[in-house]
Design a protein around this nucleic acid. Sequence first.
DNA 1: CCGGAACGTGAGAGCGCTCTCACAACTACG
DNA 2: CGTAGTTGTGAGAGCGCTCTCACGTTCCGG
Lengths: 350, 350
Amino acid sequence: MAQVEASSTRPVATLDEVARVAGVSRATVSRVVNGSPKVSADVRRTVERAIDRLGYVPNRAARSLVTRRSDSIAVVITEPASRLFNDPFFPRLIRGVSTALAARDLQLVLLMPDDEVDERRTVRYLTAGHVDGVILVSLHGDDPLPSQLAARNIPVVVLARPPHGVDVNYVDADNRDGARRATAHLIDGGRRRIGTITGPSDMVAGVDRLAGYRDALADANLPIDADLIAGGDFTHAGGAAAMDRLLVARPDLDAVFCASDLMAVGALASLQAAGRRVPEDVAIVGYDDSPIATTTRPGLTSVRQPIEEMGREMVHLLTETLDQADRIPRRVVLATELIARASSARRAMP
Amino acid sequence: MAQVEASSTRPVATLDEVARVAGVSRATVSRVVNGSPKVSADVRRTVERAIDRLGYVPNRAARSLVTRRSDSIAVVITEPASRLFNDPFFPRLIRGVSTALAARDLQLVLLMPDDEVDERRTVRYLTAGHVDGVILVSLHGDDPLPSQLAARNIPVVVLARPPHGVDVNYVDADNRDGARRATAHLIDGGRRRIGTITGPSDMVAGVDRLAGYRDALADANLPIDADLIAGGDFTHAGGAAAMDRLLVARPDLDAVFCASDLMAVGALASLQAAGRRVPEDVAIVGYDDSPIATTTRPGLTSVRQPIEEMGREMVHLLTETLDQADRIPRRVVLATELIARASSARRAMP
DNA sequence: CCGGAACGTGAGAGCGCTCTCACAACTACG
DNA sequence: CGTAGTTGTGAGAGCGCTCTCACGTTCCGG
């Protein structure tokens, strides 16, 4: 039985060995591997056979040492664990990024710095030439990473509009318009005393969605009442607490727009505990169209963001930046979609 | 203003430059960078100053070319998108893995092959010496990856016990014991006609949890009735459908153990739609202790798996395998915990 | 006071690959 | 038939790092 699969020794064939077996030079093998057109058909076939026979796989370290390219892209998520756990946003975004990278034969490297020390390690990693570009998923605007990377000339695309008009590529969903449409939908349903539970005021998404709520009221010539605006934090508990406050301040409210589904679910529980019927007494609209929106009773009307598409778009933007030397920052804002469910059903005729 | 930060040119200082600036040899700088003890204190200080001044970061490609180490670990998730979206399991696992890797200064590389083509690319990537080891998160047992990697002598740890007693490192939660305890909890609560909604029979977790259910009934000398066992698929819709079937087959059942929270939520909806009160008429226990368990009404009793710890344990196992030449496969099985909520409240005295 | 151990440092090879350049073998054209 | 171009292939340098080995100092015991 000479049929040995190079079993226990590391089967690391090199370019050199392939060249020897195929009876050509290293350069020619390299050309075959990299799909250069200037190789004659029969030499190419010979080399390919040798590659197959040896199970040759190019060593990326050696390659990227000379090309100064790693063909991988980092996705950096700087979010507290709690958000990551509860939010289906990230898996979906990653999936979008992942498929787009795969199509370009780029490798995804996920980094999730946990603390200060970790973040320094991350910067070191990114600047060590380990990746060709960085996708930054940080919903808090005060992150120093973009400028640090910019200083090192590493292409970056961030998710969500940065709060200070930094010159950086970004992709975002149209939060303001989404919130406007959600609120308009409530107005269309016959609601007039519409409250809102906002996101944190230090997050652009929170601020933008509040602005959209205001837009819709203004469009309909409805007054904006501070008593109808309660601050939340994108969490279930925060949503419930905010709802409680709204019910005290404005017991007569007939609808509420929540800047996240998690808060909407909290608000729903709070409303039901207070004996209000949804949607008969109070209509609710959430934001994110997360899976939880379909499991509540009644089902939760929500604003869907094109999350996967945002991921794909970020990759698109990044690879464009990679190829072109001119680094003109671009921004891509994607439209949202309102998914109507029972929680915002049109008010019955009185 | 001579104060230029090497702005637009790539500021890639090399070992050589550091050596020149510090007035020492390349080897000495390398020793300092790698923390070798055989460098005198003042030379070390001089070199460190030079490193700081030049903002030197070692080039990992060059390093791993010679060390044959990449100092990164791949996490390969081969799951359909749908699961990834709805299941908070993965983020938590990743988080556990991530912190454990960070503590060892290892880099996490996340791979999520989407289809056949993608999977081949993944194999190529893993065998290109890009990673030192692989953590395989595939809940389906028929994955060919472990053996492919084993053939290449790449250390692997898989999540969950493989169905065929493959010789491979794995980490798992004690599904059988968790299910046994969940069911025993229902028995303790005075329930006697206890149904179960299982996971898919091709997934070890599903099979093991069913076995645990049987164990508990056997322990309590309760009969095992096929009418009380309904097949599910770990999804919300599947849980609801299975519950409907159970209600037809055994309208008198007074409790149900669901092999996942998502199915439990579906079952809950189905029970409530059928006019059964939970927990008065029928008690429910789920599995996973996912966030959704706290948002249902009533709150869902569930079995918590130490997911983060499983991630950490996988890293632990992998790094052990990395360091030692002897590759004796190990298995680590972690205990679960029952989190009691209202959905399984003790039956009121009749 | 001398031989050898201990210690700190430098020289140089080489990891596996790409890429430029040179060159041989054709082809085409005046 | 000579010259210029075209095409396929090989030789060789070098990417930035680690690591072995050799060498110069210092220190100590006999």
